[in-house]
């Protein structure tokens, strides 16, 4: 993957497949270290499955025997001098944590993280998302439940105008905390 935000997009598909109703993505930039935490309340995995899940030849798919998402994310983090961990409990949910050293030459750029998040808000209006970004300058937190509360039941997050509003809203807030990791 060329961008960290593409890895995040990929891992989010696992949370969605796991039937999550709330997914939280937290990015924290402290010095050169960027920590990405993706937490969901989906179906979770058994201990045995978690132990094997970083193996690219492990997947829940039945069409073929490879599943690259988690193994690529882990490889990306570790290649940049960072770290990776995954915790899961059946029936409770899964948390994936990856740390990247953004000063490392092998660290991919964060990329279009807003594009990653917005596309998921719009494609899965039935799922609640929290997207937060913390830098030395402060914290941005965007909770789609707050947007849904204003919109009510009849107007969905996939309404084009709502999408544009979310895009601009998040962009403005990120500028305020100087969240530029590209």
């Amino acid at each position: 993957m060329f961008e960290i935000s593409l890895h995040i997009l990929d891992i989010l598909q696992n949370s969605i497949k796991a039937g999550a109703s709330l997914i939280t993505v937290r990015l924290t930039l402290k010095g050169n270290m960027l920590t990405v935490v993706i937490e969901d309340n989906g179906c979770g995995m058994s201990k045995e499955f978690v132990a094997r899940v970083c193996d690219p030849f492990v997947t829940t798919r039945t069409t073929r025997k490879v599943g690259m998402g988690i193994s690529l994310f882990k490889a990306g983090a570790e290649a940049s001098g960072g770290s990776f961990s995954i915790h899961s409990r059946e029936g409770v949910g899964t948390t994936v944590t990856a740390v990247f050293d953004i000063s490392c030459i092998d660290c991919p750029p964060l990329g279009d993280i807003n594009g990653t998040m917005i596309s998921q808000f719009v494609c899965h209006p039935e799922i609640d998302f929290i997207y937060s970004f913390t830098t030395d300058k402060g914290q941005m937190e965007f909770d789609t439940r707050a947007v849904k509360q204003v919109l009510g039941d009849e107007v969905s997050l996939d309404t084009p105008e709502v999408m544009q509003w979310m895009q601009e809203s998040i962009k403005e807030e990120l500028e305020q905390i100087e969240a530029n990791v590209n």
Binding site: M1, L6, L9, D112, S119, P160, M163
Partner: peptide, 21 residues
């Protein structure tokens, strides 16, 4: 999926959303 994302599906998806809007 992983294959689509790695090949560049996200900018395509976002472009469709923007154009429709």
């Amino acid at each position: 999926a992983t294959c689509g994302i790695a090949a560049g599906a996200r900018p395509v998806l976002l472009k469709f959303m923007d154009e429709v809007a």
